[in-house]
């Protein structure tokens, strides 16, 4: 065999080898931050290449479903990867209740600038965090619904509900680059959270602190 052929075969072989690890998608996007996107694409490709889907419930193909294959795992990889891609969209985590316990690990503590014991505290306070999250979503919906017609009085109510003095305080804070520790404490008190848990939560939803 010619050297050139060998080289080509080796290159193809290496690629196949890697592809069997399931990491080929990531490999094809070595600098991609959003790992979910390659997965999403991989899922899309496999889904249609397989020409089959699987019902979520039983594992049996539905008779009404075109091209269903109830027994072959391969085609199912498509929608599995698809689901995985969606799951791992961490900016909007894509989870049913969006907020889950944080892994208690050094890397996570470092990311949030807290101790592992603070992460334990956060996980303990998760029910309150979920309530706070709902309050924020509620406030956003209120603001969206009113659009530009919201009255100063209503805006004040939303701001006070989140621990701000009034709407002017809320606007000033949103306009600033970072949230001060006083604001975090005020928010924490308004939601029944400890300040550290509030800090982790706010950071997790992308607020600069």
């Amino acid at each position: 065999m010619k050297t050139s052929n060998k080289l080509i075969q080796m290159a193809l072989g290496s690629t196949l080898l890697i592809s069997q690890t399931g990491c080929i998608a990531s490999l094809a996007f070595p600098v991609a931050e959003a790992v979910n996107m390659p997965l999403f694409f991989a899922g899309t490709g496999s889904l249609f290449a397989g020409g089959a889907i699987r019902t979520l419930t039983s594992g049996d193909g539905d008779p009404a479903c075109m091209g269903c294959s109830s027994s072959h795992l391969g085609p199912m990889i498509g929608d599995i990867l698809l689901a995985a891609g969606l799951i791992l969209d961490q900016k909007n985590p894509g989870r049913t209740d969006e907020l889950n316990p944080l892994p208690i690990a050094p890397a996570v503590a470092e990311k949030f600038g807290v101790t592992q014991s603070d992460l334990t505290q956060y996980n303990d306070e998760l029910p309150q965090v979920l309530t706070a999250h709902q309050n924020i979503i509620g406030a956003i919906r209120t603001l969206s619904a009113h659009n530009t017609k919201i009255s100063r009085e209503d805006l004040n109510k939303v701001a006070v509900g989140l621990g701000f003095q009034d709407s002017a305080d809320l606007e000033t804070t949103l306009a600033s680059d970072q949230l001060s520790s006083e604001k975090i404490t005020a928010f924490a008190n308004s939601q029944g959270l400890t300040p550290t848990t509030a800090k982790i939560y706010l950071k997790s939803i992308g607020i600069k602190i």
């Binding site: 690890t21 399931g22 990491c23 990531s26 931050e33 959003a34 790992v35 979910n36 997965l39 929608d79 599995i80 689901a83 995985a84 799951i87 791992l88 969209d89 961490q90 900016k91 985590p93 889950n100 316990p101 944080l102 892994p103 890397a107 996570v108 990311k111 997790s204």
Partner: peptide
């Protein structure tokens, strides 16, 4: 199994054959 990296926490998730992630705990 295959693992999938999470963006924000830089973790890696294993998925079960039921396509759900294995729980953190």
């Amino acid at each position: 199994g295959h693992t999938y990296q999470t963006k924000s926490l830089k973790g890696s998730v294993f998925l079960g054959s039921d396509r759900q992630p294995l729980p953190t705990e």
